[in-house]
Design a protein around this nucleic acid. Structure first.
Length: 191
DNA sequence: GACCAGATTGTCT
DNA sequence: GACAATCTGGTCA
């Protein structure tokens, strides 16, 4: 069962980023179904957050970040990589959670083909890696994650401990504690 | 293991 | 024209 839309506006975005840990991201494509357990996330806080793409208001690129909660915001960066976010809060707020790493569980073989490696640690341990493994690109930008081909499913990971750290790869607001990961999980992109 | 350069293009100033 | 919410493959140790 996909998480309901209400999940994505059930509290402050950093809290939702933590609550997404242990849930299951699944992409059903004609070639097969692939997915994994979310083990690492980051929160981006719109107009309150200089590191957020939405900080300076809506543009053509960031349109979906201001859209309804529970939808995807997928962007292209560094000339070759895609990264996937989940929109939170009501429309117009511009907040989202970046999905940074998965523990691959569904469709291992297809992910290995797409990633050109069999090393499970290199399959989905990074925001651009997981997009390549799951075949996520700009054609998934703005789509609803509560129904359809790409969804986040309810899942019980058992007891987990969440570690909070600073975010990776940004040049402003570097000190904010908005990155979250599952303690001890080997598929986290870096400690 | 750590560190570093190169890849490659959409987006905004 | 500068830069980017990154990854890879190289070097050196």
């Amino acid at each position: 069962m996909p998480l309901p839309r209400s999940f994505y506006e059930s509290g402050p975005t950093p809290q939702i980023a933590q609550a997404l840990l242990g849930k299951l991201l699944v992409h059903r494509t004609p070639a097969g179904t692939v997915g994994g357990i979310i083990v690492e996330t980051e929160a981006y806080l719109g107009e309150h957050d200089p590191a957020a793409h939405s900080y300076r208001g809506m543009t053509a690129r960031t349109r979906s970040m201001f859209g309804p909660p529970g939808h995807a915001y997928v962007y292209f960066t560094y000339g070759m990589h895609y990264c996937a976010n989940v929109v939170t809060q009501e429309p117009g707020i511009g907040q989202a959670v970046l999905l940074r790493a998965l523990q691959p569980t569904v469709g291992l073989e297809l992910m290995q083909e797409r990633r050109r490696t069999t090393d499970p640690r290199l399959l989905t341990s990074g925001p651009a890696r997981l997009c390549q493994a799951l075949a996520i690109d700009r054609s998934q930008d703005g789509i609803d994650l509560t129904v359809g081909e790409l969804t986040i499913e309810e899942h019980d990971p058992g007891p987990i401990t969440v570690v909070t750290t600073t975010r990776i790869g940004i040049s402003s607001a570097q000190e904010l504690p908005l990155r979250f990961y599952i303690e001890g999980n080997r598929f986290v992109s870096r400690r």
